[in-house]
Design a protein around this nucleic acid. Structure first.
Lengths: 362, 362
DNA sequence: TATATACATGTGCTCGAAAACAAAAATTAC
DNA sequence: GTAATTTTTGTTTTCGAGCACATGTATATA
C-alpha cells in the first residue's frame, strides 16, 4: 500500500516550497520556467493526484445555483426530478453547492417572467432549467447568454449553440419512439396494424411528441418487409371517458387488424380505462412513465411495456453536472440521454427501488 | 441561504468548548449528564449535520479492503466488476479506502487457499468476495466469521446468517428467468413451445442456473391458460460447432412448434452461430450479458432480447457499500439486486454508455 | 552605487472535525 | 482539611490544499 503523494512531497523532492508547487498546479504564473518544468516532472513522476477532500475544504466557497422548474405541487411529475435534485444536494452540500428553487404555476407567464428576473439579477453561478415552454425558455436562455450565466438543461432538449449552454440531461424522444415500435413489432404478426396515439392538447406544438411519432414511424419504414400499417391519431381530452370510449371503439371498428397501440405520453392508463376486457387482451399496449395508474395496469398485465427514463435521475444528474463543472472544473458531456428502460411487471421493482438508492458519492 | 452549522457554533450556543461537543457527538463519555443534554438540545435545535469533508480529512485513517475475485485476465467477465471496483476507488480514495486485489486462476484450489490465507492474516477491515465456488466460498466465509472479518458478497448469492455478513450485491437469478419467460411469451402464440437451454458444464451444481430455469418454468405454470410447452435441455460443449448444430437440428425437428429459446448463460451467441437464416428468423431468442459476440447478433436482429445486470455496477456498489459501512457508519441493505435491464438494439447504446458514466459521488 | 520595480519564492493562516493533551473541577481517601 | 484520584472541561495540533502576504532576488533606471 503506497503512501499518498501530497503537495509537500512534491515540493521537497523538487527542492521548492509548497507555495511554488501550488502556483504551478493552478497555473497562477510567477514561476521561473526551469522551476516549473522541474515541478511538473516531479508531479508526473510521483503521479500526483490532488486530495479532493482537502481541496474542497480549503476552497470554502459557496456556489449559488438556481433551479427553474414547474411547480411540483401542481404537476406531480416534477416531484421526481426535484427529488433527484435534493438527493444530489445531500451529496454536494459540503462542497458548497447551494440551490434556490424557482417554481412557476402552469401557464402563468407573469410569474414565470418574475422568476427569470430574480434569477438573472440574483448573482447565480449556474442555473438548472427545465425549458418546458419553448418560446419563453429561449428568451430566458438568451438573457442568460447576455450576462454569461451558465445554464444546464434537463428533461426537454432545446437546440442551443451558446457558450453559456453547458449540457442537457434527459430523454431521447426520437429513440423512445423507435423502441416502442420494436417492442410492439415483437408481439404482432406480419400485416397487422399499429396505432400511435397522442393523448394531449396542442400536440403539434410539442416537439418531443412529434419526435416520438417520427421514431415510431421510421422503425416500420425501415422494417417494411413486416408490412405493418401505421395509424396516427390524437385525442385531446381523454378525461371525458364516454366520448373517449366512443372514439376508441370507432377506431377499433375502422381498423379490425389493429393489434398494438403506442401512447406517446404518460396517459396510457386512460386508454386502458376505456378498453373492454376482450379488447385489452387482443391489443398490445406500450406507453411511458411509472406513475401509479400505469403501474396498476402493468401489474394486471393489461399494459405490456412501460418505457421509463428515470426522472429522479434527471434532477440528480443535472446537479451533478453542475458540481463537476463548477467544483471539479471538468468538461461535461453536452448531451446526456438517460437509458430507455423497458419496464414490465417482472422487473418493475428494481426500477422503483433504484430511485431510493441514489445515495452515491462525491 | 442559511449558514452551515459547525461544531463551534453549537459549542458557543451551549456555553461549552468544542471538545465537549465532540465528546457528545462521538459518545466518548466524560460529559456531565446535564451538559450532554444541553448540547444535544442545541444540536437538535440548530439541525447540526457534520461536514463530512472536514470529518474525512481529520479522520486521516486508511481502511484496508481485500477483493477476492477470479482472475479477470482468464475470465473476461470479471474485467467489468473489477472495472467498477476501480471506479469506486477513484471516488473513495481520498476517504482512505484502499483495495488489494486477490485473483485466483480458474479451478486452482491451492492458489485459492493461498489467497484466503493472505486475506485472513492480512489485517483487513473488510473483504469483498465473489463466491463463485460454492464449497470453497463457504469455508472461507466461516473463517472470516471466526476472526470477525466483515465480508460483502457480489455477483453470486450465498445464504449466510453470520454477523460478519454485511450485504450482497448482484443478480436475482430466479426473477431473471421469470422475465425471460415473459419476454418470450409476448412474442409467441397460444400453444407454442419454448426451450430453456443451459450451455454450461456441471449445470446441476450451478444453483443460479437452476434458479433461472425455475423462474422460467414458474412463469408458464402461472400462465397456464397460454398453454405453452416447456422443453428443458442442456448441452455441455457448444464450442464443438458441428456436433452442437446436429444437436440443435435434432431438437428443432423433435419440436416443430418450438418458437422461443432461453439460454441461461452468456453463450446465446453460440446457439445463433449454429442456426440457419431460416431457423433464426422463426425462433425468438433471449439470453444474458452484453458481450461483443452477443451484441453483434443483437444488432443484426438475430437475438431479440439480452437481459443485463450491470456487471460494472456490481463492483462499484460492492465498494460503495463497504464505504458506507466503514466510513459513514451507516446500515447497508443486506440484499441489493441490480435492475434486470431489457436490452434491445434500440436502447443498447444507453447501457453501454452508462458504464462510462459511473463517476458519481461521495 | 543607490533605488525603484518586476518577478520569483517562501511562510503562515484558513477551512471543520478529530483526537491527543492539558487544565480545572469534583470526588474520594486519609 | 489536605493530598490523591477521578471525572469533566478546555486547548492545541493535525489532516492537505488554497491563498494572502512576506520575503528574496534579479533587472532596470537614475
Amino acid at each position: 500500500m503506497k503512501k499518498r503523494i501530497r503537495i509537500i512531497d512534491i515540493a521537497e523532492k523538487a527542492g521548492v516550497s509548497k507555495g511554488t508547487v501550488d502556483r504551478v498546479i493552478h497555473k497562477r504564473g510567477h514561476v521561473a520556467p526551469a522551476v516549473k518544468k522541474r515541478v511538473l516532472a516531479v508531479m508526473e513522476e510521483l503521479d500526483y493526484r490532488p486530495n479532493v477532500i482537502a481541496s474542497a475544504l480549503a476552497y470554502n466557497r459557496v456556489w449559488k445555483i438556481a433551479a427553474l422548474l414547474p411547480n411540483p405541487d401542481e404537476d406531480p411529475f416534477w416531484r421526481q426530478p426535484k427529488n433527484g435534485i435534493q438527493k444530489a444536494l445531500n451529496s454536494t452540500r459540503d462542497y458548497g453547492i447551494n440551490v434556490d428553487f424557482f417554481h412557476f404555476p402552469d401557464a402563468d407567464t407573469k410569474a414565470y417572467a418574475n422568476c427569470c428576473d430574480q434569477i438573472l439579477t440574483g448573482n447565480y453561478d449556474a442555473v438548472l432549467v427545465a425549458p418546458v415552454y419553448y418560446n419563453e425558455a429561449h428568451k430566458f436562455l438568451n438573457e442568460c447568454e447576455e450576462i454569461s450565466l451558465k445554464y444546464f438543461l434537463i428533461n426537454t432538449y432545446l437546440k442551443r449553440e451558446d457558450a453559456s449552454f453547458q449540457c442537457y440531461v434527459g430523454q431521447d424522444s426520437y429513440q423512445s419512439g423507435v423502441l416502442a415500435a420494436k417492442l410492439l413489432d415483437f408481439g404482432i404478426e406480419h400485416g397487422d396494424a399499429v396505432m400511435v396515439l397522442h393523448l394531449e392538447k396542442g400536440v403539434y406544438n410539442s416537439k418531443h411528441l412529434l419526435e416520438k411519432e417520427q421514431g415510431f414511424q421510421n422503425y416500420f419504414i425501415e422494417h417494411s418487409n413486416r408490412n405493418i400499417q401505421i395509424i396516427k391519431t390524437s385525442y385531446e381530452n381523454p378525461t371525458d371517458t364516454n366520448a373517449f370510449r366512443k372514439f376508441i371503439n370507432y377506431q377499433l371498428k375502422s381498423y379490425p387488424n389493429l393489434k398494438g397501440i403506442f401512447v406517446t405520453t404518460s396517459r396510457l392508463y386512460q386508454l386502458v380505462d376505456v378498453l373492454s376486457e376482450g379488447q385489452a387482451e387482443k391489443i398490445k399496449l406500450v406507453g411511458f412513465d411509472l406513475i401509479p395508474a400505469n403501474l396498476d395496469y402493468l401489474r394486471a398485465e393489461k399494459i405490456n411495456f412501460l418505457i421509463n427514463q428515470n426522472p429522479v435521475k434527471q434532477g440528480y444528474l443535472g446537479i451533478l453536472n453542475i458540481f463537476e463543472h463548477l467544483v471539479r472544473k471538468k468538461e461535461v458531456t453536452p448531451i446526456q440521454h438517460l437509458p430507455l428502460d423497458v419496464v414490465m411487471q417482472e422487473n418493475l421493482k428494481y426500477y422503483l427501488e433504484a430511485d431510493e438508492k441514489i445515495h452515491l458519492m462525491i
